[in-house]
């Protein structure tokens, strides 16, 4: 079975961590993954950088730029990920923009994901209609989940359509925002989270964008199967020893 499905069957309050491949140093991709698993992350989203990340705020823009400046490419990333499954057993998704995937070739991309043990993808600027027409077959052939985003402005009808099209989880944005904005759970956010919870979707949901500490994480978990942390983690590993920084960061979510 796909590792993502298994995780959601077995666990609640899932903590998923996003980080940029090749950051802070080009060779750190695997080490960060291993450190995260060791310190209790349930799932990983490895970002492959893009020169024009329009959905990202300053922190992930900067990590992407640094990674690219250090020579990261999709080709290099797949080489690095050859060792992924030596020590990493939790589900891993790749997250990035569509143009690098197009240039790599969709077929090649799916094949490479399957070969290194990647379980799914998040490609925010890949439209649903394109996915359905040109990508879905290939994704399914390689047992890859494709995750779609929804925001408070996404209509119910569209959410149901997304629910029918995906088979991993649905990525619930706490608000329409670029990455790195802080989560403020006000009345409208609660209404939105509750609305989604009551839709009885077939897929589990993860809340992302703006989760940065135990308090916001717990809050998110009361409405969804778990939450995703990106910017706060990327910021935390900018300097210093990776293992120490990762375990320090993850300790904040224990207990």
């Amino acid at each position: 079975m796909n590792r993502i499905k298994q995780l959601f069957q077995e666990k609640i309050n899932i903590l998923s961590i996003y980080y940029t491949a090749g950051y802070p140093n080009i060779g750190d991709t695997i080490q960060v993954a291993e450190a995260l698993e060791k310190s209790g992350a349930d799932m990983l989203e490895i970002g492959f950088p893009y020169s024009d990340p329009v959905a990202d705020g300053p922190v992930i823009q900067a990590s992407s730029k640094k990674s690219l400046d250090q020579g990261m490419t999709l080709k290099l990333l797949f080489e690095q990920l050859k060792d992924l499954r030596k020590n990493v057993t939790i589900p891993v998704l790749l997250m990035g923009y569509v143009n690098p995937v197009l240039q790599f070739g969709v077929e090649n991309f799916c094949k490479a994901c399957a070969e290194v043990g990647v379980d799914g993808c998040i490609v925010p600027d890949l439209p649903m209609v394109e996915y359905e027409e040109f990508y879905k077959g290939c994704f399914e052939e390689h047992n890859l989940s494709n995750v779609f985003l929804i925001t408070p402005q996404t209509a119910d009808e569209r959410i149901h359509k997304i629910d029918g099209l995906t088979n991993g989880f649905i990525y619930l944005l706490s608000s329409s925002a670029t990455t790195g904005k802080n989560l403020e759970v006000g009345d409208t956010t609660e209404t939105y989270f509750s609305r989604i919870k009551n839709m009885n979707l077939k897929n589990p949901t993860m809340i992302g964008f703006g989760i940065s500490d135990k308090q916001t994480f717990d809050k998110a978990c009361s409405y969804a199967n778990g939450a995703i942390i990106g910017t706060a983690f990327v910021r935390a590993i900018e300097n210093g020893n990776i293992e120490e920084r990762v375990s320090e960061f993850m300790n904040k979510f224990k207990g």
């Binding site: 024009d52 329009v54 490419t73 569509v98 197009l102 240039q103 790599f104 600027d125």
Partner: peptide, 21 residues
């Protein structure tokens, strides 16, 4: 340029082999 996606549409753009603009 080569075919690819920039600023929301599929068109022709100047990019690296890796798809970076």
């Amino acid at each position: 340029g080569k075919e690819g996606v920039l600023h929301g549409s599929r068109s022709i753009l100047m990019q690296t082999e890796d798809g970076q603009v």
